[in-house]
Design a protein around this nucleic acid. Structure first.
Length: 418
RNA sequence: GGAGAGGUGGCCGAGCUGGUUUAAGGCGUACGCCUGCUAAGCGUAUGUAGGGGAAACUCUACCGAGGGUUCGAAUCCCUCCUUCUCCGCCA
């Protein structure tokens, strides 16, 4: 949600920001409704004032045993006028907030305009591995431990079923990443894997991503598309003290995505699935420090990749590639040696106060004063399937076995998977 | 799933036989006083959002959400959400 004052003062800027994100919004319609609302409000408040005074007069007269019929009649008449005006304003209010929910966040000034072709590669790390033999994609290397047909029999196409070392590798990675985050000072959260509408609105999956989420109609719940939802919503409608900031959280969740309309290219094997596992980092920050926090989250994610010895590059996303709620986002892509391409393994976003406004997440400044909105950030740390793709494809040996990086070999109890 | 009891300002908590409550009191917080220091004590201030005013200040709304009754609703009625207790079912 954007500040209404901003919408009134700089509608042009809001419109341009939306265009930069490929969203169509009608701010003139909003401005019209907003000024109509304010005019109506004045009228309503005046009438309420009159009614309050009349009620008070009735109360006084009745207590003194006097006749108050005149005041009661006038008050009733005021009430009739009021209720029709109130009906109009509540219609306008609903309309306004509906429109506001569809206004995307404004990208930061250093975000390049345009689509993904304008993403900027900020840095890369690691050497792209070279092989003396012809490399295989992960679905061939994992033929015996990754069974898409079995998953299809159970749940439908594009779900994952792992067995043996793949299942164990996934569990090990989740545990290793959570341990890493704990060591750098994050608190581990275990949250529900479903969430209700209000939560989805707060973190801004709704209204835009409705079609991309699984929904349990009977209980009116959504399966979470990312751990961001339950972990950020831990603080929905909460008022923090400034001293509580920053709040540094992490947590494992599965992520459910319908991926409607994305069948076809690039979704073979583990590249794009309906349910994947992810460890998420979430940060609630003082507004002055969210830039710093953004870098910090990025560094946590890349540090893990370095420990796993996976070549990666960091992109600053262009406006058209930014999500609805983000003001600024880094994507981390890792190398897939079997498919010879880069795969997105983490998106690290600063939402500034956009989610905080939607979810009413505030802090009281030290020394008192009005509560202010916090800044929220989050990032994958990291997403499992593509991490596994990279580990498997980059670590493959000529006999089809997989050599593990030492941090995992230690935990898996073996240096080679076969 | 059944029965019952709750949801009040940052927190706790009174009010809930409708009208001096424009929400008591406490805690917390801020400032001041007192005090070798600290603690305690005393005093004052302190909800959120929106509008008006140069300012002191003032108006309106908000007692889980939404409807209704009434001249007037935290208070009465209805629907929904949610928490707790007991029972049932169950990993």
């Amino acid at each position: 949600m954007l500040d209404r004052k901003l919408l009134r003062k700089e509608p042009q800027r809001v419109t341009e920001a939306a265009i930069a994100k490929n969203e169509i919004i009608n701010i003139d319609q909003w401005l019209k409704a907003d000024s109509a609302r304010r005019a109506l409000m004045l009228e309503i408040e005046e009438l309420r004032k009159i009614r309050n005074q009349l009620s008070k007069a009735v109360s006084l007269k009745k207590r003194n045993g006097e006749n108050a019929d005149d005041e009661m009649t006038r008050s009733r008449e005021t009430g009739v006028k009021l209720s029709s005006l109130e009906k109009s304003i509540s219609k306008i209010d609903a309309n306004l907030s509906e429109m506001e929910k569809n206004f995307p966040n404004i990208p930061d000034s250093d975000v390049p305009l345009g689509g993904e072709e304008n993403n900027i590669v900020l840095r890369s790390w690691g050497k792209i591995p070279e092989f003396s033999f012809r490399t295989k994609p992960h679905w061939e290397l994992m033929e015996n431990v990754f069974l898409p047909e079995a998953a299809g029999r159970i749940a439908g196409s594009n779900f994952i079923l792992f067995r043996g070392w793949a299942a164990r590798l996934q569990r090990t990675l989740i545990s290793w990443m959570l341990d890493y985050h704990s060591e750098v000072g994050m608190e581990e959260i275990w949250a529900p894997f479903v969430a209700k509408t209000e939560s989805m609105i707060a973190t801004a999956q709704l209204p835009k991503m409705d079609d991309d989420m699984y929904r349990i109609h009977r209980d009116n719940l959504y399966l979470i598309p990312t751990g961001e939802v339950p972990i950020t919503n831990l603080y929905r409608d909460q008022l923090l003290e400034e001293a509580d900031l920053p709040v540094r959280l992490c947590g494992y969740t599965p992520c459910f995505r319908r991926e409607a309309g994305s069948y076809g290219k690039d979704n073979r094997g583990l590249n794009r699935v309906h349910q994947f596992e992810k460890v998420e980092m979430v940060r609630l920050e003082h507004p002055d420090k969210s830039d710093e926090a953004h870098e910090e989250l990025l560094n946590h994610a890349t540090d893990m990749l370095e420990l796993l010895n996976i070549p990666y590059r960091v992109l600053l996303l262009a406006s058209g590639d930014l999500s609805f709620a983000a003001a600024r986002c880094y994507d981390i892509e890792i190398w897939s040696a079997g498919q010879e391409k880069w795969l997105e393994v983490s998106s690290i976003s600063n939402f500034r106060d956009f989610q905080a406004r939607r979810g009413n997440m505030r802090y009281r400044p030290a020394g008192g004063g009005k509560p202010l909105f916090i800044h929220t950030l989050n990032g994958s740390g990291l997403a499992l399937p593509r991490l596994i793709i990279s580990l498997v494809e980059n670590g493959q040996q000529s006999d089809g076995s997989i050599r593990l990086p030492s941090v995992l070999a230690e935990r898996m109890g073996t240096e080679v998977l076969r």
